[in-house]
Design a protein around this nucleic acid. Sequence first.
DNA 1: AAGTGGTCTAGACCACCTT
DNA 2: AGGTGGTCTAGACCACTTG
Lengths: 233, 233
Amino acid sequence: MKGQTRLSWTDVRDEIRTRILHRTYAPGDKLPRDEDIAAELGCARTTVHRAMQDLSQIGLVERIRKGGTHVRTDPVTRATFDIPITRREVEQRGSKYDYQLISHALEDTPLSVMARFGIQQPARVLHVKALHLADNRPYMFEDRWIHTGSTPDILDVDLNMQSANEWLVRHKPYSRVDVRFYAMNAEGESAVYLSTSPGSALLVIERTTWIGQDPITSVQAVAAPGYQLTALN
Amino acid sequence: MKGQTRLSWTDVRDEIRTRILHRTYAPGDKLPRDEDIAAELGCARTTVHRAMQDLSQIGLVERIRKGGTHVRTDPVTRATFDIPITRREVEQRGSKYDYQLISHALEDTPLSVMARFGIQQPARVLHVKALHLADNRPYMFEDRWIHTGSTPDILDVDLNMQSANEWLVRHKPYSRVDVRFYAMNAEGESAVYLSTSPGSALLVIERTTWIGQDPITSVQAVAAPGYQLTALN
DNA sequence: AAGTGGTCTAGACCACCTT
DNA sequence: AGGTGGTCTAGACCACTTG
């Protein structure tokens, strides 16, 4: 006799995915009820549910109570990115990490930053510019605004010793984050500090974080030329 | 008496997250065993497990069998992006969508595309260039290579009527995808078709897909100036 | 109103890793 | 070797949404 073992939810997931790839279940089709699939494959409904949870998160199927499970007609490509502390990112590439504080000053939020924070009135913020280096070469230029209302402690930190990036990540958990990517031409400071010519195309990672309703920080992280963001998996 | 209702896994998740935010469980700390948390909060262990599954996926905690659950010391920012069919993306912005085929030709894969596909020998591919428009203005320029070995059907498609993007998404499911973002200076064709001046910084979304081991397509989607990618949530 | 997915429970066993 | 998370089951009830 052969070693018939119990079905795991990954088995079920793979089976369903295969059927979708092979068009047994075509785009737009309604899949059988969880319970029927469970009966067919010989496992508990919970196990099918776990499999479907995965497929649903990937974006392969769409599940609606009472409506049933459908294969998505317009499958989206869903990509997930990890954005670690810059120091860690550099070290994981096997490079030597260095950091330089360029400037820091107490200022009022400009309109652009007020918009990012979603606030109506200007607020007192610490404006920090800094450069991250990998193997002594510019890696990322960061232009950051830190809300002194929500994060007064930042004023006591010696930013020559420790990047604001690192201090914040270690000391200020956030409850909400907005992340966006776009391209920018190097100009002025970004060109100088990244040692590139004005006009170079640079990738920008803009991140804004809040704790509850209160803004913490907003940063434009401008990567050196050639930088690529790669999705997990 | 008040309506004491049963704890849901989201309640548990929120409770744990709050404790992490409040440093009840500080970065690096080991959390109690699932079973103990369940006992404390008064729910089944499975419910705690479901909550932890979520926190683990977000990247807030790290779980290791026998090792227990730990608060991550270097929380990463994890961002997820949906990359829909371009037509859908345009229409969801409330704009009118148009599409122009620029050129298509059978060619051999250049080295760069062989690298993306992960193949050693050149392959016969359909090289397609096309432009997507939103409200009659250039929106995205796409430079695509389609492997005719895995996808011979593409040769029968009238690419004037239907973008390769759309046809592929509808007819060729993939099992693996590589996604990366980077910045590029407009030059030559990309500048001309996107109606911008050479040198403009443009965001590029590069996507390569496979079915099993076989490459399907690789595309450089070059967005018009000002384009932003925004994370879900 | 009814059907379908979503969740919760209690118990059992398994798999993996640290000690 | 033992402890912890991971999974499976069976059954029950809930919540949402469509017809």
